[in-house]
Design a protein around this nucleic acid. Sequence first.
DNA 1: GATGAATGAGTATTCATTCAT
DNA 2: GATGAATGAATACTCATTCAT
Lengths: 201, 201, 201, 201
Amino acid sequence: MDSDLIEKRRSQILAASMDAFAEKGYHDTKISDIAERLGIGHGTFYRYFKNKLDIFFAVVDGFLAQIKVVVEEEAPQFSDSVESYRSQIRRIGGRMLRLFMADTRMARIIFFQALGVDPALDARLFSIKTLADSMVEAYLANGIVKGFLRPDLDTAVLSRAINAMTLGAAFDILFAANPSETGNRWIEAVSLLMLSGMAKP
Amino acid sequence: MDSDLIEKRRSQILAASMDAFAEKGYHDTKISDIAERLGIGHGTFYRYFKNKLDIFFAVVDGFLAQIKVVVEEEAPQFSDSVESYRSQIRRIGGRMLRLFMADTRMARIIFFQALGVDPALDARLFSIKTLADSMVEAYLANGIVKGFLRPDLDTAVLSRAINAMTLGAAFDILFAANPSETGNRWIEAVSLLMLSGMAKP
Amino acid sequence: MDSDLIEKRRSQILAASMDAFAEKGYHDTKISDIAERLGIGHGTFYRYFKNKLDIFFAVVDGFLAQIKVVVEEEAPQFSDSVESYRSQIRRIGGRMLRLFMADTRMARIIFFQALGVDPALDARLFSIKTLADSMVEAYLANGIVKGFLRPDLDTAVLSRAINAMTLGAAFDILFAANPSETGNRWIEAVSLLMLSGMAKP
Amino acid sequence: MDSDLIEKRRSQILAASMDAFAEKGYHDTKISDIAERLGIGHGTFYRYFKNKLDIFFAVVDGFLAQIKVVVEEEAPQFSDSVESYRSQIRRIGGRMLRLFMADTRMARIIFFQALGVDPALDARLFSIKTLADSMVEAYLANGIVKGFLRPDLDTAVLSRAINAMTLGAAFDILFAANPSETGNRWIEAVSLLMLSGMAKP
DNA sequence: GATGAATGAGTATTCATTCAT
DNA sequence: GATGAATGAATACTCATTCAT
């Protein structure tokens, strides 16, 4: 199949681009850098991607799509007790953090390079954030309805706060000596914080 | 005083640069853009700043210095009850958010432009984050010592989580219709989360 | 016959090229444009023509060859009176203009695109012009010898002038609402001018 | 005066560009060629001209403006006899040819390079041609009204024919061993043709 | 001190041409 | 024979920085 070869080439270029962007950032990465990493002519690059922005978009969007999947696959209505909610937090948090752990390059690009390159890409990132916020807010609303969360929660703000912590965790993991242990500590600490707060009972 | 004039010019250029960087980002801002905003020759710029990176550093660093002041002025040992701790959270949170509210341009630069421009600047941002993390951790440690916070808290992780929420708040405020009201909602919601958690008691 | 197929393909490519060159000019026509018009692979092009210049040459040369035929088929010695000369002018002029009318693309290429692409092609055009000039001059010389044209004519200059008018006519026809009527008007007006001048008798 | 220096620089670049365009044509002239001829950096070029097309336009337009002046300065109504008309033909023809003789580079650019580079420039050339046609037609109309030209002339066609001869003359002169003598021969031959025709009286 | 003319390093992109399949 | 994937030469243009005035 021709389109298989094309797809293969595209992924090779995508992979090399991720390396390059993660290492040097968008502006300091030259198309010829990417081509050199693959040992191909730089003209070849343009057979597979329209231009430099096009591939950066592809790189970032591929990751955002994965996040979107995690966000959308969950079912907020599922939990009906603090305990099942705690499991849910652990599971979603874990999946999200594993996404960031899976590819350090990607995390690096998201945190250090993605913003400010292009307005359309900024908007894309923004929309994912908004989606994630809504999803978390639905969980909180479900918890209130089911009666295991306080009825007076400011769900709009708290959902954003929770996602901010998720990002904080992903960022922290990026520099952690032991990422998966660090991830677990975050999940435990944040789920404790969320459900019980820090005050001594 | 000669040096007064020099300082005045420097701040004019600094102000114009903030406008420019906030609007178009680092890479899309030309030195001549900055000069034009001030009606000065673009050669003049180089009498006050070494180069383009130099002024971006200056812009970002000016803000980081203010954050540092807020961070360092507080006294972690002061609180000795949940109540006084809650006031402290509100006060520090309020000061921090007011910093971001005071200059939207600055917030915009920090969130959208600052990262990935220069490794040294990334490191500078990183070090401020680390400082803030330590400060918050000291508060948590104080709370544990004083006995009003749970002794089993993962202070290293939670301090980062709390700062992540502060950044989340600052970001949210940037797009809020009513920034100061939004700020207050964040402070209330987060301090409640921190001290009591979200579970129905 | 193999060579028949080859010749057929060559003319298909030639035709598509004429379209392309007439529409976008030499420099703005890509080999792939030509191939696309035919639905063939652009590599195939190179099996029939050496390179881009080669086909442009072929396109232009095909037309120049037709002009040459018209020019060379006539017999300057034939006329021996003003009247038969007038018919001759009409006939040659008509044939020449019909050549330009037959293919607007070709006229467009000759007038707007052909010059300045390649020195060798410029020279080829030049040589056709020289040939046409000589032919017309021979007619004038014949007229003088036969005694129906003024003996003091500057035949070298006038032959060029007459051909300049032919080109002028061809150009005019290119934009005429009614080309064949316009052609006739040119032929009448120019033959009158040539034989009688414009002054009131 | 600053603007004097700017104007001086512009003309230098303009002159060097004319050399380059006349020698190698539009497409084969690189901006760096032009800069090299002047011993300036190629970046300097862009301080004075927006881009490559901009300077080509400037080059060609400068010449077209001169033609326009010649065309517009004349007064068609002035002549009222064949004799004064003949002088007028000689004078206008002479001025026009001297324009082309004055700068061989310019003539070369007009004849070999100008067409097909840019639609807007093609249109500009076209509009000058149209203007010249109208002007000549006004002369013919005047001659008819004044009664020294045949009343049955096809003025629309003949005016174009006359301008075609003018272009033919300009082209011929470009390659003439003795341009000014050649110019005079054209003027004499064409004015004779125009007024008396070639037929033996 | 201020200026802005001059500079040229740096780079994305195009497209004619080749050649393995 | 046909194809189109791969190639890289070639080039216009930008903009941070310098420095003579």
